[in-house]
Simulated assay, not measured.
Amino acid sequence: MKLYHAMDEYLMYVEVEKNCSPHTIQAYTFDLRCFESFLKKYGRSCELSDVTSSTVRRFIQDQVLNQKMKPRSVQRRISCLKSFTSFCIKERYLSVDFMAGIVAPKTDKKLPKYMKLAELQQFLRYLENDRHPFALRNEALFKLLATSGMRRSEIVELTWGQIDLNEKTVLIYGKRFFIYNYYLSILVFLFRLVISQH
């Protein structure tokens, strides 16, 4: 079977059966076309059964050294090819997984960027002096974010049922169902003001 026939079948599978987003399908299409272009450029067979682990390693080497791809992009290409070969084996287009033993390069973990204390104080002063209709809400949310260690997603999903103004606590359902109870004496006043304005 020709590689491009198997690729077309795979892309239809991820679109129809796996219901992947258009963005994901576009990325998979691009990654597979890059692999096919590599094979053609270097005169390698485009028969699916002729592709080997060695061919894939040469492809990865080409992406890193010649195309100057970042490790995260290479990881995505490898992930796409692994998914593709799994599909081909499941559909019996392939008998040998040419992605077996292929390991993605490690990526440098990006360190989070933090505000310096002076920057945070300046930002909070700005919020305290803001006269926008949502200024008080914004002040409460950003102070909660800055003083509690809550994640952005936890703040976004916060409900009034999680805030106990009498006990001055906020109940947070964290990752893996951990429950955190933050004591927030400073913010209770702000939350009361927000409530009174709405």
Rank of each mutant, 00 (worst) to 15 (best):
M1R: 14
M1N: 14
M1Y: 10
K2V: 08
L3A: 09
Y4L: 06
Y4V: 10
M7W: 13
M7R: 13
D8R: 12
L11V: 03
Y13V: 06
Y13D: 07
V16E: 05
C20V: 08
P22K: 01
H23G: 09
Y28C: 05
D31A: 01
D31T: 02
F35P: 06
E36N: 07
E36Q: 11
K40L: 07
K41V: 11
C46F: 11
C46P: 11
C46D: 13
L48R: 14
V51T: 07
S53K: 07
S53T: 02
V56H: 10
F59C: 03
I60T: 10
Q61Y: 05
Q61W: 06
D62A: 12
Q63R: 14
V64K: 15
L65R: 12
N66E: 08
M69T: 11
K70P: 00
R72M: 04
R76F: 03
R76H: 00
T85M: 04
K90G: 10
K90Q: 12
E91H: 09
R92V: 06
S95G: 06
V96K: 14
D97A: 03
F98S: 01
M99N: 02
I102F: 12
T107D: 05
T107N: 09
L111W: 10
K113Q: 05
Y114R: 01
Y114E: 04
L120H: 05
F123W: 13
L124Y: 06
N129A: 14
D130C: 14
R131L: 11
P133I: 05
P133T: 03
P133Q: 06
L144I: 06
G149V: 04
G149Q: 14
M150V: 08
R152K: 13
R152P: 04
I155T: 07
I155L: 12
V156I: 08
V156T: 04
W160E: 12
N166R: 14
E167K: 02
T169I: 06
K175Q: 02
F177P: 07
L184Y: 03
S185L: 04
F189G: 04
F191G: 00
F191D: 02
L193T: 07
V194L: 01
H198M: 07
